[in-house]
Design a binder for these strands. Structure first.
Lengths: 231, 231
DNA sequence: TGCTGTGAACAAGTTCACAGCA
DNA sequence: TGCTGTGAACTTGTTCACAGCA
């Protein structure tokens, strides 16, 4: 397959968010120009990004908000339910569990895990915090799709392997560490389905964000100018 | 100036993190190969990234951990103190304030802000939560460099403008919204120094991370393979 | 010899111009 | 006419091969 730029996926998420905003305001029509302005990219870019996945507009008319929204949700896999566990229920894990917005997209927190006796057994958002020992069994039984990793950096690799071994398909890594993918594949997994492929790791690293910000403040001319032109 | 890839900056942050880990383990020497393996990139990439900023190694020998670490800190602007305010002290803002690691790099939280009477006046990590009205005065008096934005999406643009108007140089935006840069520049700023340039915005968006993860789980073959080869 | 530093080759992603359809 | 969809040009970033120095 051709290969779709990673940046395109990030932008699709942005477009979707904008479409939701428009829908709330009962705006029914938009255009590549309008989307571009709101997303801070060029209209060329919007059209190219959408073209990877199909033809969603009408020439001379633009896009119909609900239709494009529905199509983007389909493309991004947001019209299905995703079962999620959070591993690491310190402050960060708790903040994640309580952050609104996740549930909007059928991301359902079904289990919370930690190893510390201080936290295990407590209840967060109505869910008991379980011990990591229970993870493999729990993932299998509850058809868990993703794990959110919010443990300290020095435990991130182990926890990621535990998640991979338990059979999750993807990991959202909040720890400021590179997860070595090599060791993730089927760590301990016995009955590997035909569908099994490498575990996907996506990173969300806010300490890195702080550092990039420091750099660009010192070197503003190197900053991606984000020209937000509109053709 | 030539222009350094944004991705390079992100990778430099990763290299720095790895060097810190090596230093803790009293490992004094490394190489582009070693760094590459740990960072999950190629050794070519490591050398090219470093070459943008200077010559830090010794041919035939590799890199000296403390030296390379010091140089990367200098390049990234992490050998100076950054004064930071957090705007939005809901759960997310509180989690950010309490997250360890920020203070390691001279990122000092000097002020916390919100508008809700439920939060204003309370103390988080030893700092009082102030009302947004006090922001401009506070930023000026305390030489605030950056603002971390942790308000609900529908208030993000206003809060960003308030930060820009108050005179911060950069904003780390945790809200799932595109900040329109157009409106940020010198909103209400009177005495603009020669140094003044556009406010830098860097985004940390974990909802977007969730959605990207969903997409790549559904389309694993489109995932950036992260080959982590080592030449 | 070994590993860095770097110009040149290549690949990926973005911009553009315009064809095509409502 | 107006705005989408898309092949082609271009620009940016990555990979590579190898020169150069300890």
């Amino acid at each position: 397959m051709t290969g779709i730029p990673t940046a395109t996926i990030s932008r699709l998420v942005t477009y979707l968010r904008i479409l939701e905003g428009l829908e709330v305001q009962d705006i029914l029509r938009t255009s590549s120009n309008d989307l571009a302005e709101r997303a801070g990219v060029t209209a060329f870019q919007v059209r190219k990004d959408l073209a990877y996945f199909g033809r969603f507009g009408t020439r001379g008319m633009g896009y119909t908000v609900p239709i494009l929204k529905r199509e983007l949700m389909r493309v991004l896999g947001l019209n299905q339910t995703w079962n999620v566990v959070i591993v690491g229920m310190g402050r960060l894990g708790q903040a994640i569990a309580n952050y609104p917005g996740a549930s909007d997209y059928q991301f359902q927190y079904v289990g919370l895990f930690d190893v510390s006796p201080d936290v295990v057994g407590r209840t967060v958002r109505g869910l008991p915090v379980r011990h990591m020992d229970e993870l493999p069994e729990f993932v299998r039984r509850n058809k868990v799709d993703m794990g959110f990793l919010a443990v300290p950096p020095d435990h991130a690799q182990d926890a990621a392997q535990a998640l991979a071994g338990a059979g999750v398909r993807g990991i959202l890594n909040f720890a400021p560490t590179v997860i070595q993918p090599r060791m993730l594949e089927r760590a301990g997994q016995q009955e590997i389905s035909d569908e099994w492929r490498a575990v996907i790791v996506e990173n969300v690293d806010f300490l890195a964000g702080m550092k990039r910000l420091a750099f660009y403040i010192l070197n503003p001319h190197l900053n991606a100018v984000d020209t937000e032109e509109t053709e």
